[in-house]
């Protein structure tokens, strides 16, 4: 019986002598996990007829309004949003793309800066638009995004020919930089 008592005592003492190595659960407050996600965005491939109306006149300003579909999310962990644009322009015109954000009543709440400038006859160009943390709340609460495309007029007053084979490419994606913290 002594052996039995010794055995149980051994296990009980072991249990009470355990857990002695130093751990610090308060470290949880210092956790920071930095993650970034890529989300593909809008693109367009416009040809000469896309810049002409039914009368053959140039459309120097065009817009495309998109309902965001998802809005009102939390910006608690979003550190930065970077809108990456890649363009290619075979036309001998300069294009500017301005991206405006609107609320549910279609009031302008934010304009991405800088405007995307696409020089004439330009190869692949990359533009990065960084949305600072202070503006992220506006961006993720936007209900509509409007893409405004400006085409410069020609220097000699000529009009784009409908048979011009040139193409304007615009490609984009967004990078979301998150910083998860436990504070």
């Amino acid at each position: 019986m002594k052996n039995a008592l010794f055995g149980y005592l051994f296990l009980i003492v072991c249990c009470f002598q355990s857990c002695t190595k130093a751990v610090d659960f308060d470290q949880i407050d210092n956790v920071q996990i930095n993650t970034n996600y890529i989300v593909t965005q809008v693109f367009f491939n416009l040809e000469a007829p896309d810049f002409l109306n039914e009368f053959g006149d140039e459309l120097n300003i065009q817009s495309n309004l998109i309902e965001t579909g998802i809005s009102g999310g939390t910006d608690k962990y979003l550190e930065k949003i970077v809108f990456n644009v890649e363009t290619k322009n075979e036309f001998s015109r300069t294009f500017n793309v301005t991206i405006n954000l609107f609320d549910a009543s279609k009031n302008l709440i934010y304009t991405l800066s800088p405007t995307v400038v696409i020089p004439p006859n330009s190869g692949a160009l990359t533009t990065q638009i960084e949305i600072p943390k202070k503006d992220i709340g506006l961006v993720i609460n936007a209900q509509y995004i409007d893409f405004l495309l400006f085409m410069s007029s020609s220097s000699d007053g000529s009009i784009i020919s409908p048979s011009d084979p040139s193409i304007l490419n615009f490609k984009s994606y967004v990078e979301l930089f998150l910083n998860y913290t436990t504070e």
Binding site: T40, Q41, V42, F43, F44, L46, D50, Q62, S63, N64, L65, I66, E67, T68, G69, F147, L149, F170, K171, S172, Y173
Partner: peptide, 22 residues
């Protein structure tokens, strides 16, 4: 699979991009 929204700049026949995708 999705590559993104293909903008058409055709406000006379505006596409419902988000709902179409959904």
């Amino acid at each position: 699979e999705v590559e993104g929204f293909d903008l058409e700049f055709d406000n006379s026949n505006a596409a419902d991009y988000w709902n179409d995708l959904k």
